[in-house]
Design a protein around this nucleic acid. Structure first.
Lengths: 208, 208, 208, 208
DNA sequence: GATGAATGAGTGTTCATTCAT
DNA sequence: AATGAATGAACACTCATTCAT
């Protein structure tokens, strides 16, 4: 959290993130990263200690960014009505997932490289579910929501479904209107609609 | 479909499947596999031609098994009422996912090793969604379901959420009643409940 | 010399000879040989003991054949005049070299596989040079040859030049009239002419 | 021509050259080379990219050296009489062949590793034959030579015979005066005499 | 602070050979 | 007599990392 990265380090992390998300951690060599980032092979060990440690920093870096982004978002909707808040929340989460799909693609893998990062990530998840819970409770209290599903269940559906769609192009593109265009863009649209319907159905949202 | 495997080959595939699901394809060496399976390193190349080809056979083998299992299941419930069919279907899918989690864990990874297997898998998905569609339509026709969500949207939620839960132990176990016990068993129970509620909410199932 | 080979063994040797001459001893695997010869991989070890021993047998087999062929040839010209004998001899040697180029291609490599074959080969060479010597002496005695070059020097030139041409297509084809046709055929013609001129020049042959 | 090698690289090439000439390309493992050269196995790939590419560099390196050596030699005799030039030329070529016999031993093998080197080598051969042609023509013009054999035929005899002698110790040593001593040294002496006689016989040199 | 050279460990694969049948 | 299954050793090569500068 406190660790500040230099521009070069951030550049390396950016490059590494994309490559790792595409080819996997083991499938990405530090030579791939260093040549793509136009730096010396030794730099990664030099800057981060090792490839594994670089992975840790990468997690931390992106988790931190995600938290900041979410905090800012939460601030922006704090005065809205619960149903609006929920809608925006779903939209925000889905759009972030699709935007940083390469990152989230490997966050969900077993966190074996990241003993101490786990806390950071779980901390974030906790903040996240707490926030959802608040919105749900407010909605139920105000009568716009009928049911109060658990935040972790809602989150599981949103995150799981989005990641599934991101990763399973072969399957999901069959059901998209125009296959030739950018897959992720089309997929996100259909995905978001699905999620909104599902979440509001689970909340028993009274439209009228 | 035609290819028959010997017991030894199946043993190797089983071992490989578990390791690959845990550590990834690149992260799993053929020496890992061969020592775990108590066979000679050369056997993998000998039996399957190469590590990559072994991966192909692994896919085929498991997809075939999954298809057979599903066909049998579908036959067993063909005379039930739509709401029962749907409930059983969700239960079947979730239980299969958790049972063969190590397999499904890597099915969703980019299918780069499997040019011609893609067809097999998509073929299966198509059968699958067609089956769901039938149940939904019958339910709507008979009046027990209010809405007719797309089969692929339902499937996305079920598969995505389940895989997410399987993969994100660190996150999901926080919300489980007894953490120390077998994670997957507990997770599956909570997960299934969540899915049933979500699916039936989306269908607008009339309880009374 | 005494060892008799079965038809199958001879078939294997024939196949092996061609492959080894083309790709080298180390470059030719027993799998190459066995698949080309439509036999089981184990057959080579089974029949010959090992790949190396097969090589020995191969040498012996071809040397023996070559000796037989030469003996027959020598018999056929024994009543001719020295200059005719010499001409025929050069023609015979060159044609044999080009015919069995794949064999002679590796005979000239270091004979490390063939401890006891060496004797066979040297024995043959001795017979060979003795034969040449006879012709030379007869020619000098009868006055058609002026000089009496050593048989081993003549032989060195004939064998060395022929093998060089066989092996150095890239170089020699530059000087051939029609490059597109069968290289060896063209090369042999030019080669033979060169050898005849050279040998008779060394002998100081009096044309008139 | 442009590529400069470090001392270590040259050391590796020297070691590789000797081993390859003795045991063939396939028969020489990079472990052989690296242990002989007291370097790490990985160095060969590191320095040259691969074993095959090392082979290419080896060719280039030696061909370049040979060309330079020949250019220097040609300069040194440019003012001599044709018969002296020819004699020196034969001596130069034979001595070079015997000196770098391990190299020339594999140059004459099929150039399958060296697509673009072929040009270098052929270029050299062309220069070479052109030079021989000049000497022959001058000699014929000045009347010391009677015939004008083709340069490639002379070259074939010189190169072929020398390489044959280098490679066929078992055969040629029979005819050497003192067998126990250094074979190549003795062989070269006899060889050179043979070549000089042969070449001048072909040229119809008038001793006067 | 930064890097090119170098390394040992590890990769997937192919090899000639053995052995039970 | 013949062979399919299996194996240990060796193969070329890539890896992340270290170290002298």
């Amino acid at each position: 959290m406190k660790k500040k990265f230099s521009d070069k380090q951030i550049h390396i992390l950016d490059v590494a993130e994309k490559l790792i998300a595409r080819k996997g951690f083991e499938g990405t060599s530090i030579r791939d990263i260093s040549s793509q980032a136009n730096i010396n092979v030794a730099m990664i060990s030099y800057y981060f200690g090792s490839k594994e440690k670089m992975m840790s920093y990468l997690y931390r870096y992106r988790v931190q960014k995600t938290r900041e982004s979410f905090a800012e978002f939460a601030e922006g909707i704090k005065d809205s009505k619960p149903e609006v808040q929920m809608k925006e929340l779903v939209k925000h989460v889905v759009s972030q997932l699709f935007k940083y799909n390469y990152f989230h693609g490997f966050v969900t893998q077993e966190l074996r490289h990241t003993e101490h990062l786990k806390d950071d990530l779980l901390d974030f998840y906790t903040t996240f579910t707490a926030n959802i819970d608040d919105v749900v409770k407010k909605g139920v209290a105000s009568g716009v929501f009928t049911y109060a599903p658990k935040a972790e269940d809602l989150l599981t559906i949103i995150l799981g479904s989005s990641l599934f769609v991101i990763r399973n192009k072969n399957f999901y593109e069959i059901y998209l209107p125009e296959k030739e265009e950018d897959y992720l863009k089309n997929a996100e649209r259909k995905m978001l609609a699905n999620m909104l319907v599902a979440v509001f159905a689970l909340l028993g949202y009274k439209t009228a």
